[in-house]
Every structure is written in C-alpha cells, then in structure tokens.
Design a protein around this nucleic acid. Sequence first.
DNA 1: GTCTATACAAAGATAGAC
DNA 2: GTCTATCTTTGTATAGAC
Lengths: 181, 181
Amino acid sequence: MADRNAARTRERILEIAGELFRARGYAGTSIADIAGRLGTSKSALYYHFASKEEILDALLAGVLAAHARVAELAGSAEHGPAEVLGAVVDMVAGSGAVLATFGADPSVAAALAGRDHVHGLRAKDEQVVARLAGGDPGALAAVAALAVAKDGGRALMAERGALSAADRADLLAAALRALDG
Amino acid sequence: MADRNAARTRERILEIAGELFRARGYAGTSIADIAGRLGTSKSALYYHFASKEEILDALLAGVLAAHARVAELAGSAEHGPAEVLGAVVDMVAGSGAVLATFGADPSVAAALAGRDHVHGLRAKDEQVVARLAGGDPGALAAVAALAVAKDGGRALMAERGALSAADRADLLAAALRALDG
DNA sequence: GTCTATACAAAGATAGAC
DNA sequence: GTCTATCTTTGTATAGAC
C-alpha cells in the first residue's frame, strides 16, 4: 500500500514537471517550483527522484521509444510515404505535451548532449526524411512534409488539446500534399 | 572612437548571446557563460546591458518587427495566400538564427510573459492563419501551411545555414500545396 | 514518505577602483 | 570600459529526525 502511494506521487511529479518544463523550459524550472505545486518540500521530491535530470529522463523515455518505432518503420523498405507520415502523426498525437517539451526546448537538448539520446533523435528524424525523399538529394519537400506532420501537429495539439481521427486524416493529407502535390 | 568600441562590443555580446541562447536556451545560459566567451568579466557585460533580459530584448527586437510586418501584410485584404506565405518564408530566411531561438525556447516565452511581446507574437501567427484560412473555421490546412513555411524553414536553415532563392521558391510551393493542393 | 535544517555552488547584479 | 570584490537570491542536493 505504501508502494501504491509512492507510485502515485511519482506519477504526479512527472505530470507537474511535464507541465512546468513545457511552460518555462527545463532550465527555467526549479525543483522548488515542482515541489511547490506538488504541495510538499523539495526533500520529499528527492525521495522519488535522485536528481532533476532523472525526472527529465523518465519524462522522455516514452517519446524516445515512440521515435524509435517510427524510425524503424521508416527504415524498412516495405512502407510508403503515407504509412510513414501516418506513423509520425500518430506519434505526435500520442505523445503530445511531452513531445512539445522535448522538441522545443534547447536546454533539454543541452542537458542530454553527449548522452546518446539527442543524436539518436536527430538521426531518427533524418531517417524519416531520407525515406520520404526516396533517395532524392533535394529533400526540401520531404523536410516540408515532416514539418507539417510534426510541427503542424504540435501547433494543432496546442490549439485543440487533442487530435480527432478526422484531424489526423486531414493532417496526413496536408503532409502528403506538401510532399509532392 | 570610444563609442565605436562600445558599439562593437555590444554587437559581439549580442552575437555570442544569440549563439548560446540557441544552443542551451535562455534560462540555461548564464551571464558568466557569455562573459567567458567574450573574454571579459561579468561586470564588463553590465556596462553594456543593464540585465540579462535586456540582452534578450535587443536580440528579439528585429524578429518582432519582422513578425509585425508580416501580420500587417496578412491583415490587409489585398494580398493572397502566396504573398502572405512568401513573406513568412522571407522573414524566416532573414531572421534565421534568432527566430530559431525565439520560436523554440519556452524559457524565452516565460521571461516575456505579460510583457506584451508574447501575446503579440501568437496573435500575429493567428492573424496569418486566419488570412490563409479565408474565414474557413476548419483551419487545419492553414496551420499546416504555416508550419511548412515557418518550422520547415527553420529546419532547413538549421541544416543548410541559409536559404537560396531556389530554396525559398520550393518552400513556398510546398507551403501552398499544404494549403490546398 | 515527508519534514526541517543546512551545505554548497551558481546565478544575477552592484560598488568602487583604475 | 573593464577590473576585483562582494552582496543577495536562488538552485541542487544531502543529513538526519519523525
């Protein structure tokens, strides 16, 4: 039962940290800020997480896994542009708030520099672009299509809170149009 | 002549600060970091700028003005989607590195919260979207088109350093395709 | 599991000499 | 214009009681 409470508290911390990181940035958010919203002391927080960076890692784990799955899909030759971009849209819709944090905050990238994650992420984006470009060196249209799916998706999420099935379909269509009309 | 040197130093500070803000985020960059790269003490910095935030303001002034010009263009009814999106592309190409900072860093938005700028910025984006949507309430395609021009443009800038005339034309074409095929 | 108290470093900023 | 020295606040993190 004690375990239950600890797990609940852990979840609340991640939830609060996610909100604050998104609003003020990772570097711009202090442990005191998080503890304040949680309604406990800073020390209580350190019982659940060994450091601020550990909170970030826990928050990012899901997004990184989702990116990895999309990149894997893009890597295999069996999937067309529509499938790949559809997977990107679903990923954005699924990991919404956290992705907004990760993708938008330079201090997150700086905190993770050298620790595999970042290069992994950028490499994964490039893998998707390469697949969409189909070997074409002038990959501008592919970059544009990914921008629609990922950044356009983020903008829509921020605006509407979530993406309906119709939104996803429309977004995919717009991305495909950006790719090659 | 003393004025000349001061002006030069001011420029160097802005240059260095811009790079660091982009790499580590605004909140993640300290005055000491900037002074270190400048090769002087922290105090020297405070001779040129009264505060960290003042550096940010100076850095953002150009981008905000550029956004205002685009929004103004979008506001007048005489310009079509191609003109508006072209202006967005030019704005991105022109204010490159700084826009990447501004658009991507939550700690920048937090630092400016309440101080007109931010609402101004978001409002200006919405004005562009509204114009592109042409009154259509389902503005997804407009959001998508803006994402191509702005975020796609950012991604390209990050990748290529600058946008050639051909890049701009291609990007605009992709944005128009995202808008309505 | 959460608290108070505290260590310790880093941050933003200022004073006053040169 | 730039320095050294210093103040103050804030930040991350730990120790030890309950």
